[in-house]
Design a binder for these strands. Structure first.
Lengths: 214, 214
DNA sequence: CTAGACAAACAGAACGTTCGTTCTGTATCT
DNA sequence: AGATACAGAACGAACGTTCTGTTTGTCTAG
């Protein structure tokens, strides 16, 4: 119990013995299965049985790596928040004209939608988010992670755009609006089944937000 | 099975016999219990047992009125979409100045958040929406209802604001953005637990949207 | 270098609980 | 009388957890 903190998910910190690597691979397979199941069947129907079958792993192996379902969801949530959630910088971020800056922001918002939100991972995260709202045990385990992530992502995004004309608070607010909107759009498919219509909505929204970046 | 279509939820169409009223009251109690359970415990934990206990009704009575859980969710979803989801008209909707119009739209968006989305009913609807995404049986029963509601609500909102300077398509798009944003905000509490911060975000968003109503 | 103790990885049976549904029976209104 | 409202027991299936084995690397004493 004197290990660093949580179990390591990254391939090799110092060295990884064969047994450790084996465990890492298994844990990875399981977490991926959880993400797939959440996306395909939703939180309510993501049972241990289903995860086990989808991961192609025995019941014993699953319970060995994750003693409880709660543990499974906590680790999955952390995994889903792990990737860099900031659009990649393409060249310099110093823009000469306002129109250049607007286009860049617009493209980044569309990128967020296509690469982060409207994906297996994005939908899986939504399932966990909604479930966490009412599951007090789960909330106690990961709510702090969510709050910290929220602060970190706002800082990263603000740092990504060097604007002197717009207060940092306002920038953070605009990016928060983006995330909220895109998350809401993940549930809009019930009302608007046409995928193109939703994409068009993203573009309109992106343009509206982008023009606020003076 | 030759009844109109679905069971009636409205109090009295022509006359209501004592037995009919009794049934209506029971059904209403049950649907309210479902809404409360969805809000408090989420979709996954809204079991028949819990609903029955919360409604203060026997198991037999529950299964008598709603033979299956799916039926229960369908009726609840229809109930949640039933109320007028358009802000009440306050006086005339003909505005002299642009600033008046902006203020009116802004106030209406805040009204939607406070009275429709950030409520028991709003959260319950979100639970059903998310569950419906992956539950094919449920989807088959209510997806058409969602689509029709979406069209109807856009028409109502557009009709509520007599604008000649803005194309109707653009108005519908703006209102859709509002609904998507507010729905997404219902899941934002995990990232931003401070209720005041979220309210402030609504006001900022409302102002941004309102200024688009030229 | 290797024998062997030990812990970790894995397999699967068994646990009690809860799920949603079905069934039989009783009271009440039409 | 007959249908409807209600009550509650009983059902098998599925849930998440706990348990007992078996295999397989790892580490150390000799």
């Amino acid at each position: 119990m004197n290990k660093p903190d949580t179990a390591s998910d990254r391939p090799e910190p110092p060295t990884a013995s064969r047994k450790e690597q084996q465990a890492i691979v298994a844990r990875d397979r399981i977490v991926r299965a959880v993400i797939d199941c959440l996306d395909e069947h939703g939180y309510a129907e993501t049972s241990i049985n289903r995860i086990q079958e989808h991961a192609g792993i025995s019941r014993g192996a699953l319970t060995h790596h994750f003693p409880s379902k709660e543990e499974l969801m906590v680790v999955t949530a952390e995994r889903l928040l792990q990737p860099t959630l900031v659009p990649p910088r393409k060249g310099s971020r110093h823009f000469d004209t306002a129109e250049q800056r607007i286009s860049a922001v617009e493209a980044d918002i569309v990128w967020m939608w296509e690469r982060l939100v409207d994906t297996r991972e994005g939908r899986a995260l939504l399932e966990i988010l909604v479930a966490t709202r009412t599951d007090v045990a789960l909330k106690g385990r990961i709510s702090e992670t969510f709050v910290r992530w929220n602060r970190a992502i706002n800082d990263s995004l603000a740092a990504n755009y060097l604007l002197h004309g717009l207060a940092e608070d306002e920038q953070r607010e605009l990016w928060t609006m983006c995330r909220v909107f895109l998350r809401g759009l993940n549930t809009q498919s019930q009302f608007e089944p046409d995928h193109h219509a939703r994409s068009a909505l993203v573009r309109s929204f992106a343009r509206m937000i982008a023009t606020r970046f003076v």
